[in-house]
Nucleic acid binder design. Structure first.
Lengths: 239, 239
DNA sequence: TTGTTCGGCGAACACTGTTCTACGCCTCGA
DNA sequence: TCGAGGCGTAGAACAGTGTTCGCCGAACAA
């Protein structure tokens, strides 16, 4: 009784390997993250994700509201591993920096994910945990509540902005070319252009030409972060 | 000899009002800016701009390299009106703030133009003029060269990031709805969600709930800008 | 066994930036 | 005055995008 009838050729035969496990949101986020890491955010399209799962784009919409939600899920997963230290009043500045560095590292680790992170208020569990942790550290450091609250907003903005800007260079590289080389040439071109400007109109800029292009991404990030925290520490109240 | 032959009906007759003035880059930027202000950055597509000029999208490519260049031209025009004050050593902080406020104002005045401003190093004439002006003011204020150079980079990043984030709320408004109302509801929702979090896990966040959502966009921008400059002033050298 | 619901998904819609290519007008040299 | 280029114009097409419609099959409830 296992003998099957031959399929009538006029009846469009269905797909043979139909024994597929059903889609889940986790699977979708998985392959989306893999594509993101391998080829960048622009490659993460609904069709591409669906294709990687051997299905059509419409199938994804049963598990994900739209592309925006998919990107939010990516951000949430990427930022998941941030650990918030126990507040130590003597090290509040370093602790704040440590959290900021972690967030930035998680963003830049996954290509140009920062572009997605800039859209929308992060209300995920990890985001509120980080906020809570920052507030605790700043309170231990003697920062007044109003300034601490606004600082969370501003430092998130700074981190996202920095990661976003940094991702722009990466997405400019033409075609599997050497990234180091390309960035060097790019900045070299701008630098020599600045060098060719009329000295009487741009004396300070020409004077500081070397400074402007010195320092790696990490150093510049650190500098800005330090500026924000030095500024914040001027509000410090030591009772 | 002015008598024209009647057009043969089988020959698809050409457009009658052909007496059009030729396209220029300025015209293109004009209508692109008009569309941007009226309907936001997403509405600025090559087809839309071409349609507004009664032509096809291909025609634009004779005057503009690609869409990226068109957006750069928009940013350049928007940032054109920034005036850089003569350096006054006693007011260097206020002068820096004044420049930053102008740039931000020009960005937020034109819908979500900030999204375009985040892409690429601004090497336009106005951009280098602003850089030169900032360096002059900081030198007058006694800021060392290295810190001043990096500060230009960081404060541009901060301004663009703030304007970009602010533009996100605006592009979220569903359909010609009251913007004020929508933003209030949106933040109200988040606020009440935060208020419903377990107090033992998020004591500080619940404690600072009012602070977190207080203050208009301008105030928060001013706060972050002030932080950066307070931080910078710690590097000050008064010889 | 019979609904009924629900996820999968092919097809289609309305877009996007960009390129190909033919065509018409203008200017320049003869 | 007349041809010859060259250049800007623009229709059509290409290869994509996010999203929706509606049909099909399977699984669960009555």
């Amino acid at each position: 009784m296992d003998l099957e009838m031959p399929v009538p050729p006029w009846k469009k035969q269905r797909k043979p390997a139909k024994a597929r496990q059903p889609l889940t949101q986790e699977m979708i986020v998985d392959v989306a993250m893999r594509i993101l890491d391998a080829e960048g955010l622009d490659a993460v399209s609904m069709r591409r994700v669906a294709q990687e799962l051997d299905t059509g784009p419409a199938s994804l919409y049963a598990h994900v509201e739209n592309k925006g939600e998919l990107l939010e899920l990516l951000v949430e997963r990427a930022a998941g591993g941030v650990v918030v230290p126990e507040p130590d009043p003597d090290r509040w500045m370093d602790q704040m920096k440590e959290i900021a560095r972690q967030i930035r590292a998680n963003l830049v680790a996954h290509a140009d994910l920062a572009k997605a992170a800039m859209a929308g208020v992060p209300t995920t569990e990890t985001a509120v945990s980080i906020t809570e942790g920052m507030l605790a550290i700043m309170k231990a450091g003697g920062i007044p509540g109003q300034q601490a609250s606004w600082f969370v907003d501003r430092v998130f903005l700074y981190i996202n902005g920095d990661a976003y800007e940094g991702s722009q260079w990466h997405s400019m590289i033409p075609e599997g070319q050497d990234a180091e080389r390309f960035v060097a040439d790019y900045f070299g071109g701008i630098k020599s252009y600045f060098g060719s400007l009329p000295p009487q109109r741009f004396p300070h800029l020409l004077d500081r030409l070397e400074d402007m292009f010195s320092g790696a991404d990490d150093e510049r990030f650190e500098f800005g972060l330090d500026l924000l925290l030095r500024g914040l520490s001027t509000y410090r109240e030591t009772p």
